[in-house]
Design a protein around this nucleic acid. Sequence first.
DNA 1: TTTTTTGCAAAACCTTTGCAGTTGG
DNA 2: CCAACTGCAAAGGTTTTGCAAAAAA
Lengths: 156, 156
Amino acid sequence: VTEPQASGDVAIERILARLKDDGGRITTPRVEIVKILLASDEHLSADDIAERVQAAHPSVATSTVYRTLETLEQLGVIDHVHVAHGRAHYHLAERDPHQHLACTVCGAIIEAPAALLDDVAARVRRELGFELEAHHSALIGRCRECVATDARSSGA
Amino acid sequence: VTEPQASGDVAIERILARLKDDGGRITTPRVEIVKILLASDEHLSADDIAERVQAAHPSVATSTVYRTLETLEQLGVIDHVHVAHGRAHYHLAERDPHQHLACTVCGAIIEAPAALLDDVAARVRRELGFELEAHHSALIGRCRECVATDARSSGA
DNA sequence: TTTTTTGCAAAACCTTTGCAGTTGG
DNA sequence: CCAACTGCAAAGGTTTTGCAAAAAA
């Protein structure tokens, strides 16, 4: 059986290889951070990631997490989205491209189809010469649950 | 001549009246901040505003600026938009409603038609139950000038 | 060994808060 | 006079940075 059995292993290898090809080094914090990114479907904040790394390796500094995320982003491995209060969330670039909707009430990040802003992007390019980096900023508002909660409490 | 000659005066009066109606007081910092907001077409950060107030009244504290902006926002006089790095920009709510495009390179905020995101808002509401607060977050990307500069430098 | 990466601590950035003193009405 | 507002300074949360020690290649 030469087929890899866990796709995560392959993914890790590929990412670490990219790091190496770039003249980078494979270190424990980096491996752990990549694992966490691969293991999570969610959009994690730098602090979320730091917390998880530190659960297993308490000595890893938060600044290392930031520096690693920056490196991975430069390599095109991950992307980050800004949600409303200056916090960034990170996720693998390889995931299906998608837009982000951030709930101002509960903080949830909901994924929307990548094409959501295509028309808007075309329009601002045509009319204003503006190149939208659509994946880079979340659209903000309230998610289904929080809208429902709101309606319930104000209606009652 | 009972007609006001400068529309700015009327606007100031109206805003200060709202403040007063709400049980608020008319103070020097508040008057100055409202004037600055009225005098500027731009989207100002809290710090921009603080700087301008302090040019004339050096003792006005930045925290007062934040508190005043918060008060004015609660009264519906102003709105704020979040641009990519955790900085908020403030502008009068009375201005023509519009969307904001923030340039990641030069920091400019470009206004776009208010209706820009109407279709998107309708779609995420229908498909995801998400209530977009369209005016609240800027779309980010690169403005015409910065796109041109980029093309020039990478093309050369 | 050499260069990259790390951990730590400190600083930077934007914003909020506590509190005593000031001010508007 | 009294509540609302202010200035100051300190703290909050997130991210960045300087630097010497540690680790990868």
